[in-house]
Computed example of a mutant assay.
Amino acid sequence: MSTSMPTTCQKLRLGETYQGKQGFSYFQGIARETTGSQGICMHILRIPPGGRAKAHLHESHETAIYVLEGEAIMYWGEQLEHRMETNAGDLVYIPAGVPHLPINTGSVEAVAVIARTDPHEQESVRLLPELEDLVPQ
C-alpha cells in the first residue's frame, strides 16, 4: 500500500471483523489497510459479558476510547496495579506504552469506539503474558 496521504474522502460501514492480538474481535474500521490513513485508526469493539483481553500495551501510540454501551473495568499500570471502572458515556485515554487489561464485568455486551494514533492498529500491540496472573479471573 502507498505511504502517501489519501486525497479523497471515504465512507465505510461496519461489516467484517478481525481477531486482535489482545484476544477480542474488532469491527474493521478506519486504518491504513482500509482507507490508506497515515496517522490514525478507529474501530468498534464489542466485549461480551465476561470477556477479558490479554494484558498488553501499544508501543509509541496513544489510545482514545468512548464507551457507547455497557460497563467494563480496566486494570492498568506497570503491574496492572490500578483499576478503572468505565460505563456508557465515559471517555478513556491510554498513553502510549502503558500496560492495560480490560474486562467486561457486566451482564450485557460492552460496546466502545476506539481510536489510536497507529494507522495499522495491531502493529504496535505488545502482549504482556507475564502480567496475566496479576488480575483476578
Rank of each mutant, 00 (worst) to 15 (best):
L68Y: 01
L68F: 08
E69V: 14
G70Q: 09
G70T: 00
G70C: 07
E71I: 15
A72R: 14
A72H: 12
A72E: 03
I73W: 06
I73M: 13
I73L: 05
M74R: 04
Y75E: 07
Y75S: 12
Y75L: 03
W76C: 11
G77W: 09
G77P: 03
G77L: 09
E78T: 15
E78P: 07
Q79K: 04
Q79P: 13
Q79G: 10
L80W: 01
L80I: 01
E81W: 15
M84V: 07
M84E: 04
M84L: 08
E85Q: 07
T86P: 14
N87A: 11
N87E: 09
N87T: 02
A88I: 02
A88C: 04
A88W: 12
G89V: 01
L91C: 02
L91M: 10
L91Q: 15
L91T: 11
V92L: 03
Y93V: 07
Y93A: 11
I94D: 01
I94V: 15
P95S: 02
A96R: 08
A96W: 11
G97S: 01
V98P: 10
P99W: 00
H100L: 10
L101G: 14
I103K: 11
I103E: 12
N104S: 12
N104F: 01
N104G: 12
T105W: 05
G106S: 05
G106Y: 09
